[in-house]
Amino acid sequence: MSETLNTFPDTWKKPPLIRNPTLRWGLIVGFAIYLAIALGTMDVNWQRAWEGIPRGQRFILAFFPPDFSDSRNVVWDGILESVWMAIIATVAGIALSVPIGLGAASNLAPKWVYFFCRSIVAGSRTFPEIILAIFAVKLFGFGPFAGFVALSIGTIGFFAKLLAEDIENMSASQAEAIKATGASWFQWINYAIQPQVMPRMIGLSVYRLDINFRESAVVGIVGGGGIGATLNTAFDRYEFDTAAAILLIIIGIVMVLEYISGYLRKWVQ
């Protein structure tokens, strides 16, 4: 045994993740070069950044304690406006998403409906809500209505897409079984499709409400109503303690929403 013992190799190297050496080194070198160029072309005014440090300190200190006093009553107004905007945009967006989502499911809809609905979904998904809001403000004027429209469109892109994908992935056998009973199209949707996709959709609606609330906090920056405008003004006037209070309220509401959505999802399943 001791003779054979020495015949075994005593070194071992882990085989690399990418076995083709050209590709491996190509990727490593390529990424290194990219990083170098990216950092090199980054135009940073270091002096300005340096001067900003005391301001950053003041901002952080403003959290201890934040100023919830809200003398001009603008904070609560803005927060409530954001909340209402988020709720109603979620409801309207989902109401519109259901027909579009059904139409965008390839196993339900005829070809032309499918392409039509898919292009609506793709269109509303591409642009961030804030760009949609800029245009909505141009069209509808300043105020929460513009934010509402922007968020509704954003909701369609999100919700209709997921709904369509869910319908495409559902079990075909259940759908067929209902169809075989001679059910009409609406009955078929009601009995075969709805039960299969409903639980996930309820969870997703709360999730979307959460997203819409977070977005509604920024559409105000471009004039779309909600707390964003107040926040922007607070920063413009260097009222950091008010800004800190607003941020904490936003974080708090999001936490509550997240908790509710977790609870609701458990309850639905």
Binding site: L5, N6, F8, P9, D10, W12, K14, P15
Partner: peptide
């Protein structure tokens, strides 16, 4: 860094050989 002592690596190969999996090491 996967730098095990030489004796451990030799023993690992010996065991793998013993159970007939020498060719599967990597």
């Amino acid at each position: 860094t996967r730098k095990f002592p030489k004796k451990d690596i030799r023993e690992a190969y010996r065991l793998l050989d013993r159970v007939g999996l020498m060719h599967m090491a990597d």
